[in-house]
């Protein structure tokens, strides 16, 4: 059995979701690891590493009452590898443009073609209803230079998407 389970949870946002779930997990004897929890649209989303000796079935059973009461959807995957596997990004790609289908695929295909490993991606749709704007911020690691990536992404500029590549400087002090 793997030491960790990746718990995925989605549901209509409301106060108390995190408190309720983490209390249940604590009472089950689980440890919590790295997590990403964020409100997307009107939903609250959780990706959470749950450690300990409990199986996925035990975790699911313990969370079922809370999940049903709060109208959430839950998914568990055993995962290998533990904590302390952080990769530090060296490049940041900021994208903004009039919202249209295909922006993410266009940008990330080019990045992938240069071996860019996406470590974090967040995006928002801003602007107003008539003219929505898509804004995306990607941090990742790439062995190629900033200039090479800029050159590769430049054609997107001609199609109305502004793309900016900048270094991520990590200051260790």
């Amino acid at each position: 059995m793997s030491d960790w389970n990746m718990l995925t949870l989605v549901g209509a946002d409301r106060p108390g979701i995190v408190a309720r779930l983490t209390r249940e997990l604590y009472q089950l004897g689980c440890n919590l690891g790295e997590a990403s929890m964020i409100r997307l649209g009107g939903s609250f989303t959780i990706m959470l590493m749950v450690g300990g000796d409990r199986s996925a079935d035990e975790i699911r059973a313990a969370l079922t009452p809370a999940v049903q009461e709060m109208g959430l959807r839950l998914h568990l995957d055993p995962v290998h590898g533990g904590l302390h596997q952080h990769l530090v990004p060296n490049l940041q790609v900021r994208v903004a443009g009039a919202d249209r289908a295909g922006i993410v695929a266009d940008v990330t295909e080019i990045l992938a073609g240069h071996g860019f490993n996406v470590l974090e991606l967040e995006s928002d749709v801003a602007g107003d209803q008539e003219r929505p704007i898509y804004i995306m911020n990607i941090q990742g690691y790439c062995g190629e230079t900033l200039e090479v990536l800029e050159g590769a992404l430049a054609p997107l500029g001609e199609r109305g998407v502004s793309v900016d590549v900048s270094p991520v400087d990590v200051m260790i002090g």
């Binding site: 302390h84 952080h86 990004p89 400087d169 200051m171 002090g173």
Partner: peptide
């Protein structure tokens, strides 16, 4: 805004 790490906080930026 910039990313930082610290000798006193290993494995975190």
């Amino acid at each position: 805004t910039g990313r930082e790490g610290c000798l006193s906080v290993p494995d975190y930026t």
